[in-house]
Simulated assay, not measured.
Amino acid sequence: MKRRLYNNLIRLFLVSIYAIFISGILKVTLLEVVGFKPPINERSFWISYLILFNLNTEFNYYLDKYLNNHLPWFFNNTKRVILQFSCMILSTLIIIGIPFVIWYIKIGQSLSYPISTVILFITFLIFLLNFMGIPVAINFHRQMQKYSLEVEQLKREKLKADYKVLQNQVDPHFLFNNFNVLIAEISYNPDKAIEFTRKLSKVYRYVLQSKNHDLIEVDQELQFIKSYIYLHQVRIGNALNFSLNVSDAALNKQLPPLTLQILVENAIKHNIANDKNPLNVSIQSCDDNTLIVKNNLNPKSELHSTFTGLSNIKSRYELLKKEGFSVEQNLSHFTVRIPLIEE
């Protein structure tokens, strides 16, 4: 309460200083030229002007606060500008212009020059718009920053939610399929079943740990992908071929976790993989700052893609302010370029 009162007094003081300064300029430069004669004594006229100027400024100050709640800058800038400055002009006409004109008419005073009242009003209006324009501009900047931060936060929260959904998607069918494979391997190949269990454990450990990281080293992601591919190869057999060729320099760079898993999973999910139509997936470094994930195309005709995984990866790179993520598709291959990030 005290803080608000203090701020109001400071604002009234500054407005009064500004009004006195402007009135001095008008008196010296303009009013003597147009022959303006106040309808009351000069001191009473300028005191009245000072009061009305403060009243007009306060009206526009609270108008600005009201519009912040009911018509924020972020949603309709054009409408806000038109409405706010129209109200400024109208309030100046009503609070400052009309009272003095009525005052003149009431006491039967005449003007040395008929245009003087108009000039006086326009001058007051110009100075008021300049004065009010400063806090309005500051408020506009603050409002835009506030809403930009809120939108950015909402994007991050949505992305985190989408990311968790993608992480959870690794669980159900993938888990059940691998348990079935594991049961079969235990019966026919116990040694291979042990290795399969180790790889499965590595995959889920990585998925759980990745929830705590925005970025992870390429080397760690590739170790995870090797285990992930191995599980699918045990299930699919020779129908899935995987090649890896990444430079040592690229291994030390970073990327969003599970990026490669999403791309490999999409390739397996959306393409036929059998002895007649093997699926070939490759990961290689184009240079030390880019990975290329590529697979041949033999799409499953009945499967419809929502592109959720690709959209998530793209959004994560946008939030990281990192350009270079791209998707290319032709008749034979599907290729994704992934920009790498310095530590």
Rank of each mutant, 00 (worst) to 15 (best):
L83H: 05
Q109F: 07
P72E: 13
C87Y: 00
I95N: 01
L63T: 14
I126W: 09
S91D: 04
L90V: 11
I95C: 02
P99R: 06
S86L: 12
M132D: 04
S86G: 11
I107G: 07
I82D: 05
T78P: 01
I102D: 01
Q109E: 13
P72G: 06
W73E: 03
F127G: 02
L111I: 12
G108R: 10
M88K: 01
N130M: 12
I102V: 13
S110F: 08
L120T: 05
V118Q: 03
L125P: 02
L129C: 15
L111K: 04
L111G: 02
P99L: 05
I96Q: 00
Y113S: 15
L120I: 15
L90H: 03
I122Q: 03
N69V: 15
L129K: 04
F124D: 03
I105F: 09
F124T: 01
D64K: 00
I94K: 00
Q109W: 12
F100W: 01
V81H: 08
D64P: 01
T92D: 04
F75K: 14
I119H: 02
S86I: 08
L125V: 03
I119S: 02
S112Y: 09
N69W: 14
L90T: 08
G108P: 02
F85S: 04
I102F: 10
F127S: 09
M132C: 06
I105L: 14
I126E: 07
Q84H: 14
I89F: 14
F124W: 04
K65Y: 07
F85W: 13
G108C: 11
I119A: 09
W103V: 03
S91Y: 05
I126Q: 05
R80L: 03
S116V: 09
S110N: 11
V118G: 09
C87S: 11
I89S: 07
I89L: 15
N77C: 07
I94E: 00
I82C: 10
T92L: 02
S116C: 08
Q84D: 09
D64T: 04
I119V: 15
N68C: 12
F127C: 06
L90I: 15
L67F: 13
W73R: 08
S112Q: 14
K106I: 14
M88L: 08
L125Y: 00
G108K: 11
I94C: 04
S91F: 07
Q84E: 10
R80F: 05
N68M: 15
S91M: 06
T92G: 09
M88C: 13
I119K: 00
Y66I: 11
Q84W: 13
S110K: 11
I122K: 02
V101R: 00
F131M: 12
L63S: 06
S110M: 10
P114R: 11
I102M: 12
F85G: 03
L120Q: 10
L83F: 13
I107H: 08
I89M: 09
I82K: 08
L111D: 05
F127K: 02
R80N: 07
F74R: 11
P114T: 09
N68V: 09
S91C: 13
F124A: 03
I119T: 08
D64S: 10
N69K: 15
K79D: 01
T123W: 06
F127T: 10
I102S: 05
I96C: 03
S91T: 14
K79N: 07
V101F: 07
Q109S: 15
Y113H: 14
G108N: 12
F127M: 08
F74A: 13
N77Q: 10
L71D: 04
M88F: 08
I105T: 13
I82R: 08
